[in-house]
Amino acid sequence: MSQDSRNIYGGQAVIEGVMFAGKHVNVTAVRRKNDEIAFYEVPRTSKSWVQKLKKIPLLRGVVAILESSAKGSQHLNFSMEAYAEDELTDEKDQAKASEKEKEGKSGWSLSMIVGVAVAGIISFVVGKIAFTVVPAAIEELLFGGSNLNIVIHNLIEGLIKIVFLLGYLYVISLTPLIKRLFQYHGAEHKVISAYEAGVDLTVANVQRYTRLHYRCGSSFIVFSVLVGVIVYSFFHWDSMWERIYLRILLLPVVLGASYETLRFTNALRDLPVLRYLGYPGLWLQKLTTKEPTDEQVAVSIASFNRMLELDRQMGKA
């Protein structure tokens, strides 16, 4: 296996495409309506102090999350703009169609684009507020007066979070655009798995691999719930507001510890017994990923190969 194949790569699904993050560059490939593949390439730059923070356990997880969010938003915006441009082009091509058909097409395109934006906003709100504050408040309202151990309170809170998470993912997966996004998410995982196995990145080879992967952000979400149960158990509260305050205050600690847990389980995934530590995250990925088509896998391969090509060029510069 080559030196490149020992590198750890990650990525994310975008609208009609996939982004991969290399050592020196981030590359997104999207399939346009004319069936061509368009690329968006952004060199990776990072301040020296950021690199130092990324070497500190616990703190590096928070830094990685913030960096990944900023990076992902930039590439998601590119894919959304390409999608919107294709839709507008289709509308111009249909200028001679009936006004009713034209309006229907325009409305559909707008709703799809707005749907992506709303999904992004909801994801942020749910992740930062609902998944942190609301479950704690609900548990406090339902069981706050009960004479239960603090660990039991936290376990119930964690269960409420899991129910919220599964319900949210199931509902958004029913929309056509999000379903395709989840297919590209599966294509991203398949390409990384095939690459890590050292096989040639052809559509046939890549399709043989699972759409689930230990390092996925979906696994991180599950770990954040489980780790939260442990971390919160070390802190006592006397009121609902104090409980909510503690949850928000300890959120960076939970995120940092969850990141370390994800790294730990990924390092142990080949051990016969300890590999099961990562299974909860893999189970959640059955909702956040779907089996991709050959065309979607081809886009993912194109993105990954372009990233590798630029990484090698910039690494020699």
Rank of each mutant, 00 (worst) to 15 (best):
K96N: 12
S5E: 10
G72M: 02
K54G: 06
V273N: 08
V199D: 10
V134G: 04
Q313S: 04
E295T: 08
K179F: 08
F304C: 03
Q207K: 08
P280N: 05
K71D: 14
A317N: 10
D90A: 11
I156V: 07
L282V: 08
H236K: 14
L66G: 00
H213M: 04
E41C: 14
K92S: 10
G198L: 11
R6G: 03
V254S: 13
V114A: 13
M240N: 03
P43G: 12
P135R: 08
L287R: 01
T202G: 14
I37C: 01
G281Y: 11
L249M: 11
V222W: 00
G72A: 04
C216N: 02
E188R: 01
N266K: 08
E85P: 00
L251Y: 09
V163T: 06
V25K: 00
E67P: 01
E157P: 01
A117R: 04
L226E: 05
S98K: 13
R6P: 01
S146R: 09
T175G: 10
G198N: 06
V222T: 04
Q183A: 15
Q285H: 02
G186V: 01
M80Q: 08
Y40V: 08
T288R: 06
F304S: 01
K47Y: 13
V191E: 00
V14C: 01
G72Y: 02
S123W: 13
Y40A: 07
V134T: 12
Y195F: 15
L110M: 10
L255V: 15
Q296N: 11
R263N: 08
S46W: 09
V62S: 01
G281H: 06
G104S: 14
L284A: 02
A257N: 02
K92M: 14
V42P: 07
L310K: 09
N26Y: 05
N7D: 13
N205H: 02
Q12H: 03
L271Y: 12
Q296C: 11
R269S: 13
I156D: 04
H236T: 10
L155R: 02
D35Q: 14
N266G: 12
F220V: 00
L53M: 13
I113S: 13
E295H: 08
Y214V: 12
Q296Y: 03
Y209V: 00
E157M: 05
R211P: 00
L148W: 13
V191F: 00
V14F: 08
S300A: 15
N34M: 13
G72T: 06
L282F: 06
I156C: 07
L268S: 07
L166F: 15
L53Y: 07
Y168F: 14
E291A: 10
V62F: 15
V225I: 15
T210G: 09
S218C: 04
K290S: 03
T175S: 15
G120E: 01
Y170I: 11
I129L: 12
A97Q: 12
S258D: 03
R275K: 14
S106M: 13
I230K: 04
A13T: 01
M314W: 12
L255M: 15
D270T: 14
I192S: 02
L76C: 03
L76F: 15
Y245C: 14
G104C: 03
Y9F: 15
R215F: 08
L148Q: 02
I8C: 06
S224G: 03
S106Y: 04
V299H: 02
L155C: 09
D200M: 05
H185E: 02
M240V: 11
A257K: 00
G228H: 08
Y259S: 15
G17N: 06
A64F: 06
